[in-house]
Amino acid sequence: MRPLSSQAYNQRRDDLYSRFDRLGRVNLQDLGANRSIRKLVIDLVVPGQGGPLRDEARFRYQEWWRRSSVGWLRFRYDYDYFDLLSGARRGYHLHPLNGRVVPHAVCEVAPRPGAGGHYEAHEVDLLAAHEEFEAQYASGRPIDCRGLRRID
């Protein structure tokens, strides 16, 4: 992902907020714009209406960006989709594993302590991850980990 100027970062943030607000209730946090590390947190609950409409899914996206001479550089992310009805989870992460920064997928079909293996994955953009998760949610099919290759 290419570096972003502060203006481009803010525009992307606002675009993401508008897009996700159409799907559910969004809580977005933009932290640290005046510092060397900046964090974007997006918590999206669907339907997110309360009342008789039960929440079905939660999308939690976190990104860490480092200030540089060419703009803001994304260097770490956690993109997660939680199926609130089944407790399953699917994610794409970029953070240290065994001392190395490595992009990977996360998949767990039932919540339990220590569950959720790490699987091979390429680096992804937030919107690409969201479109995959959104399609999974919209399909109504349960999350499964078939086709993923474990890395630990």
């Binding site: 907020y17 809580n27 977005l28 933009d30 640290g32 510092r35 590390i37 209406q49």
Partner: peptide, 23 residues
Amino acid sequence: RLARSSMTIEPDADVESEVADEP
């Protein structure tokens, strides 16, 4: 009827400690 979304901007928030394990 929509439940309200929210955006919080904290330019001076310190998140550096969260990535202290970064090689």
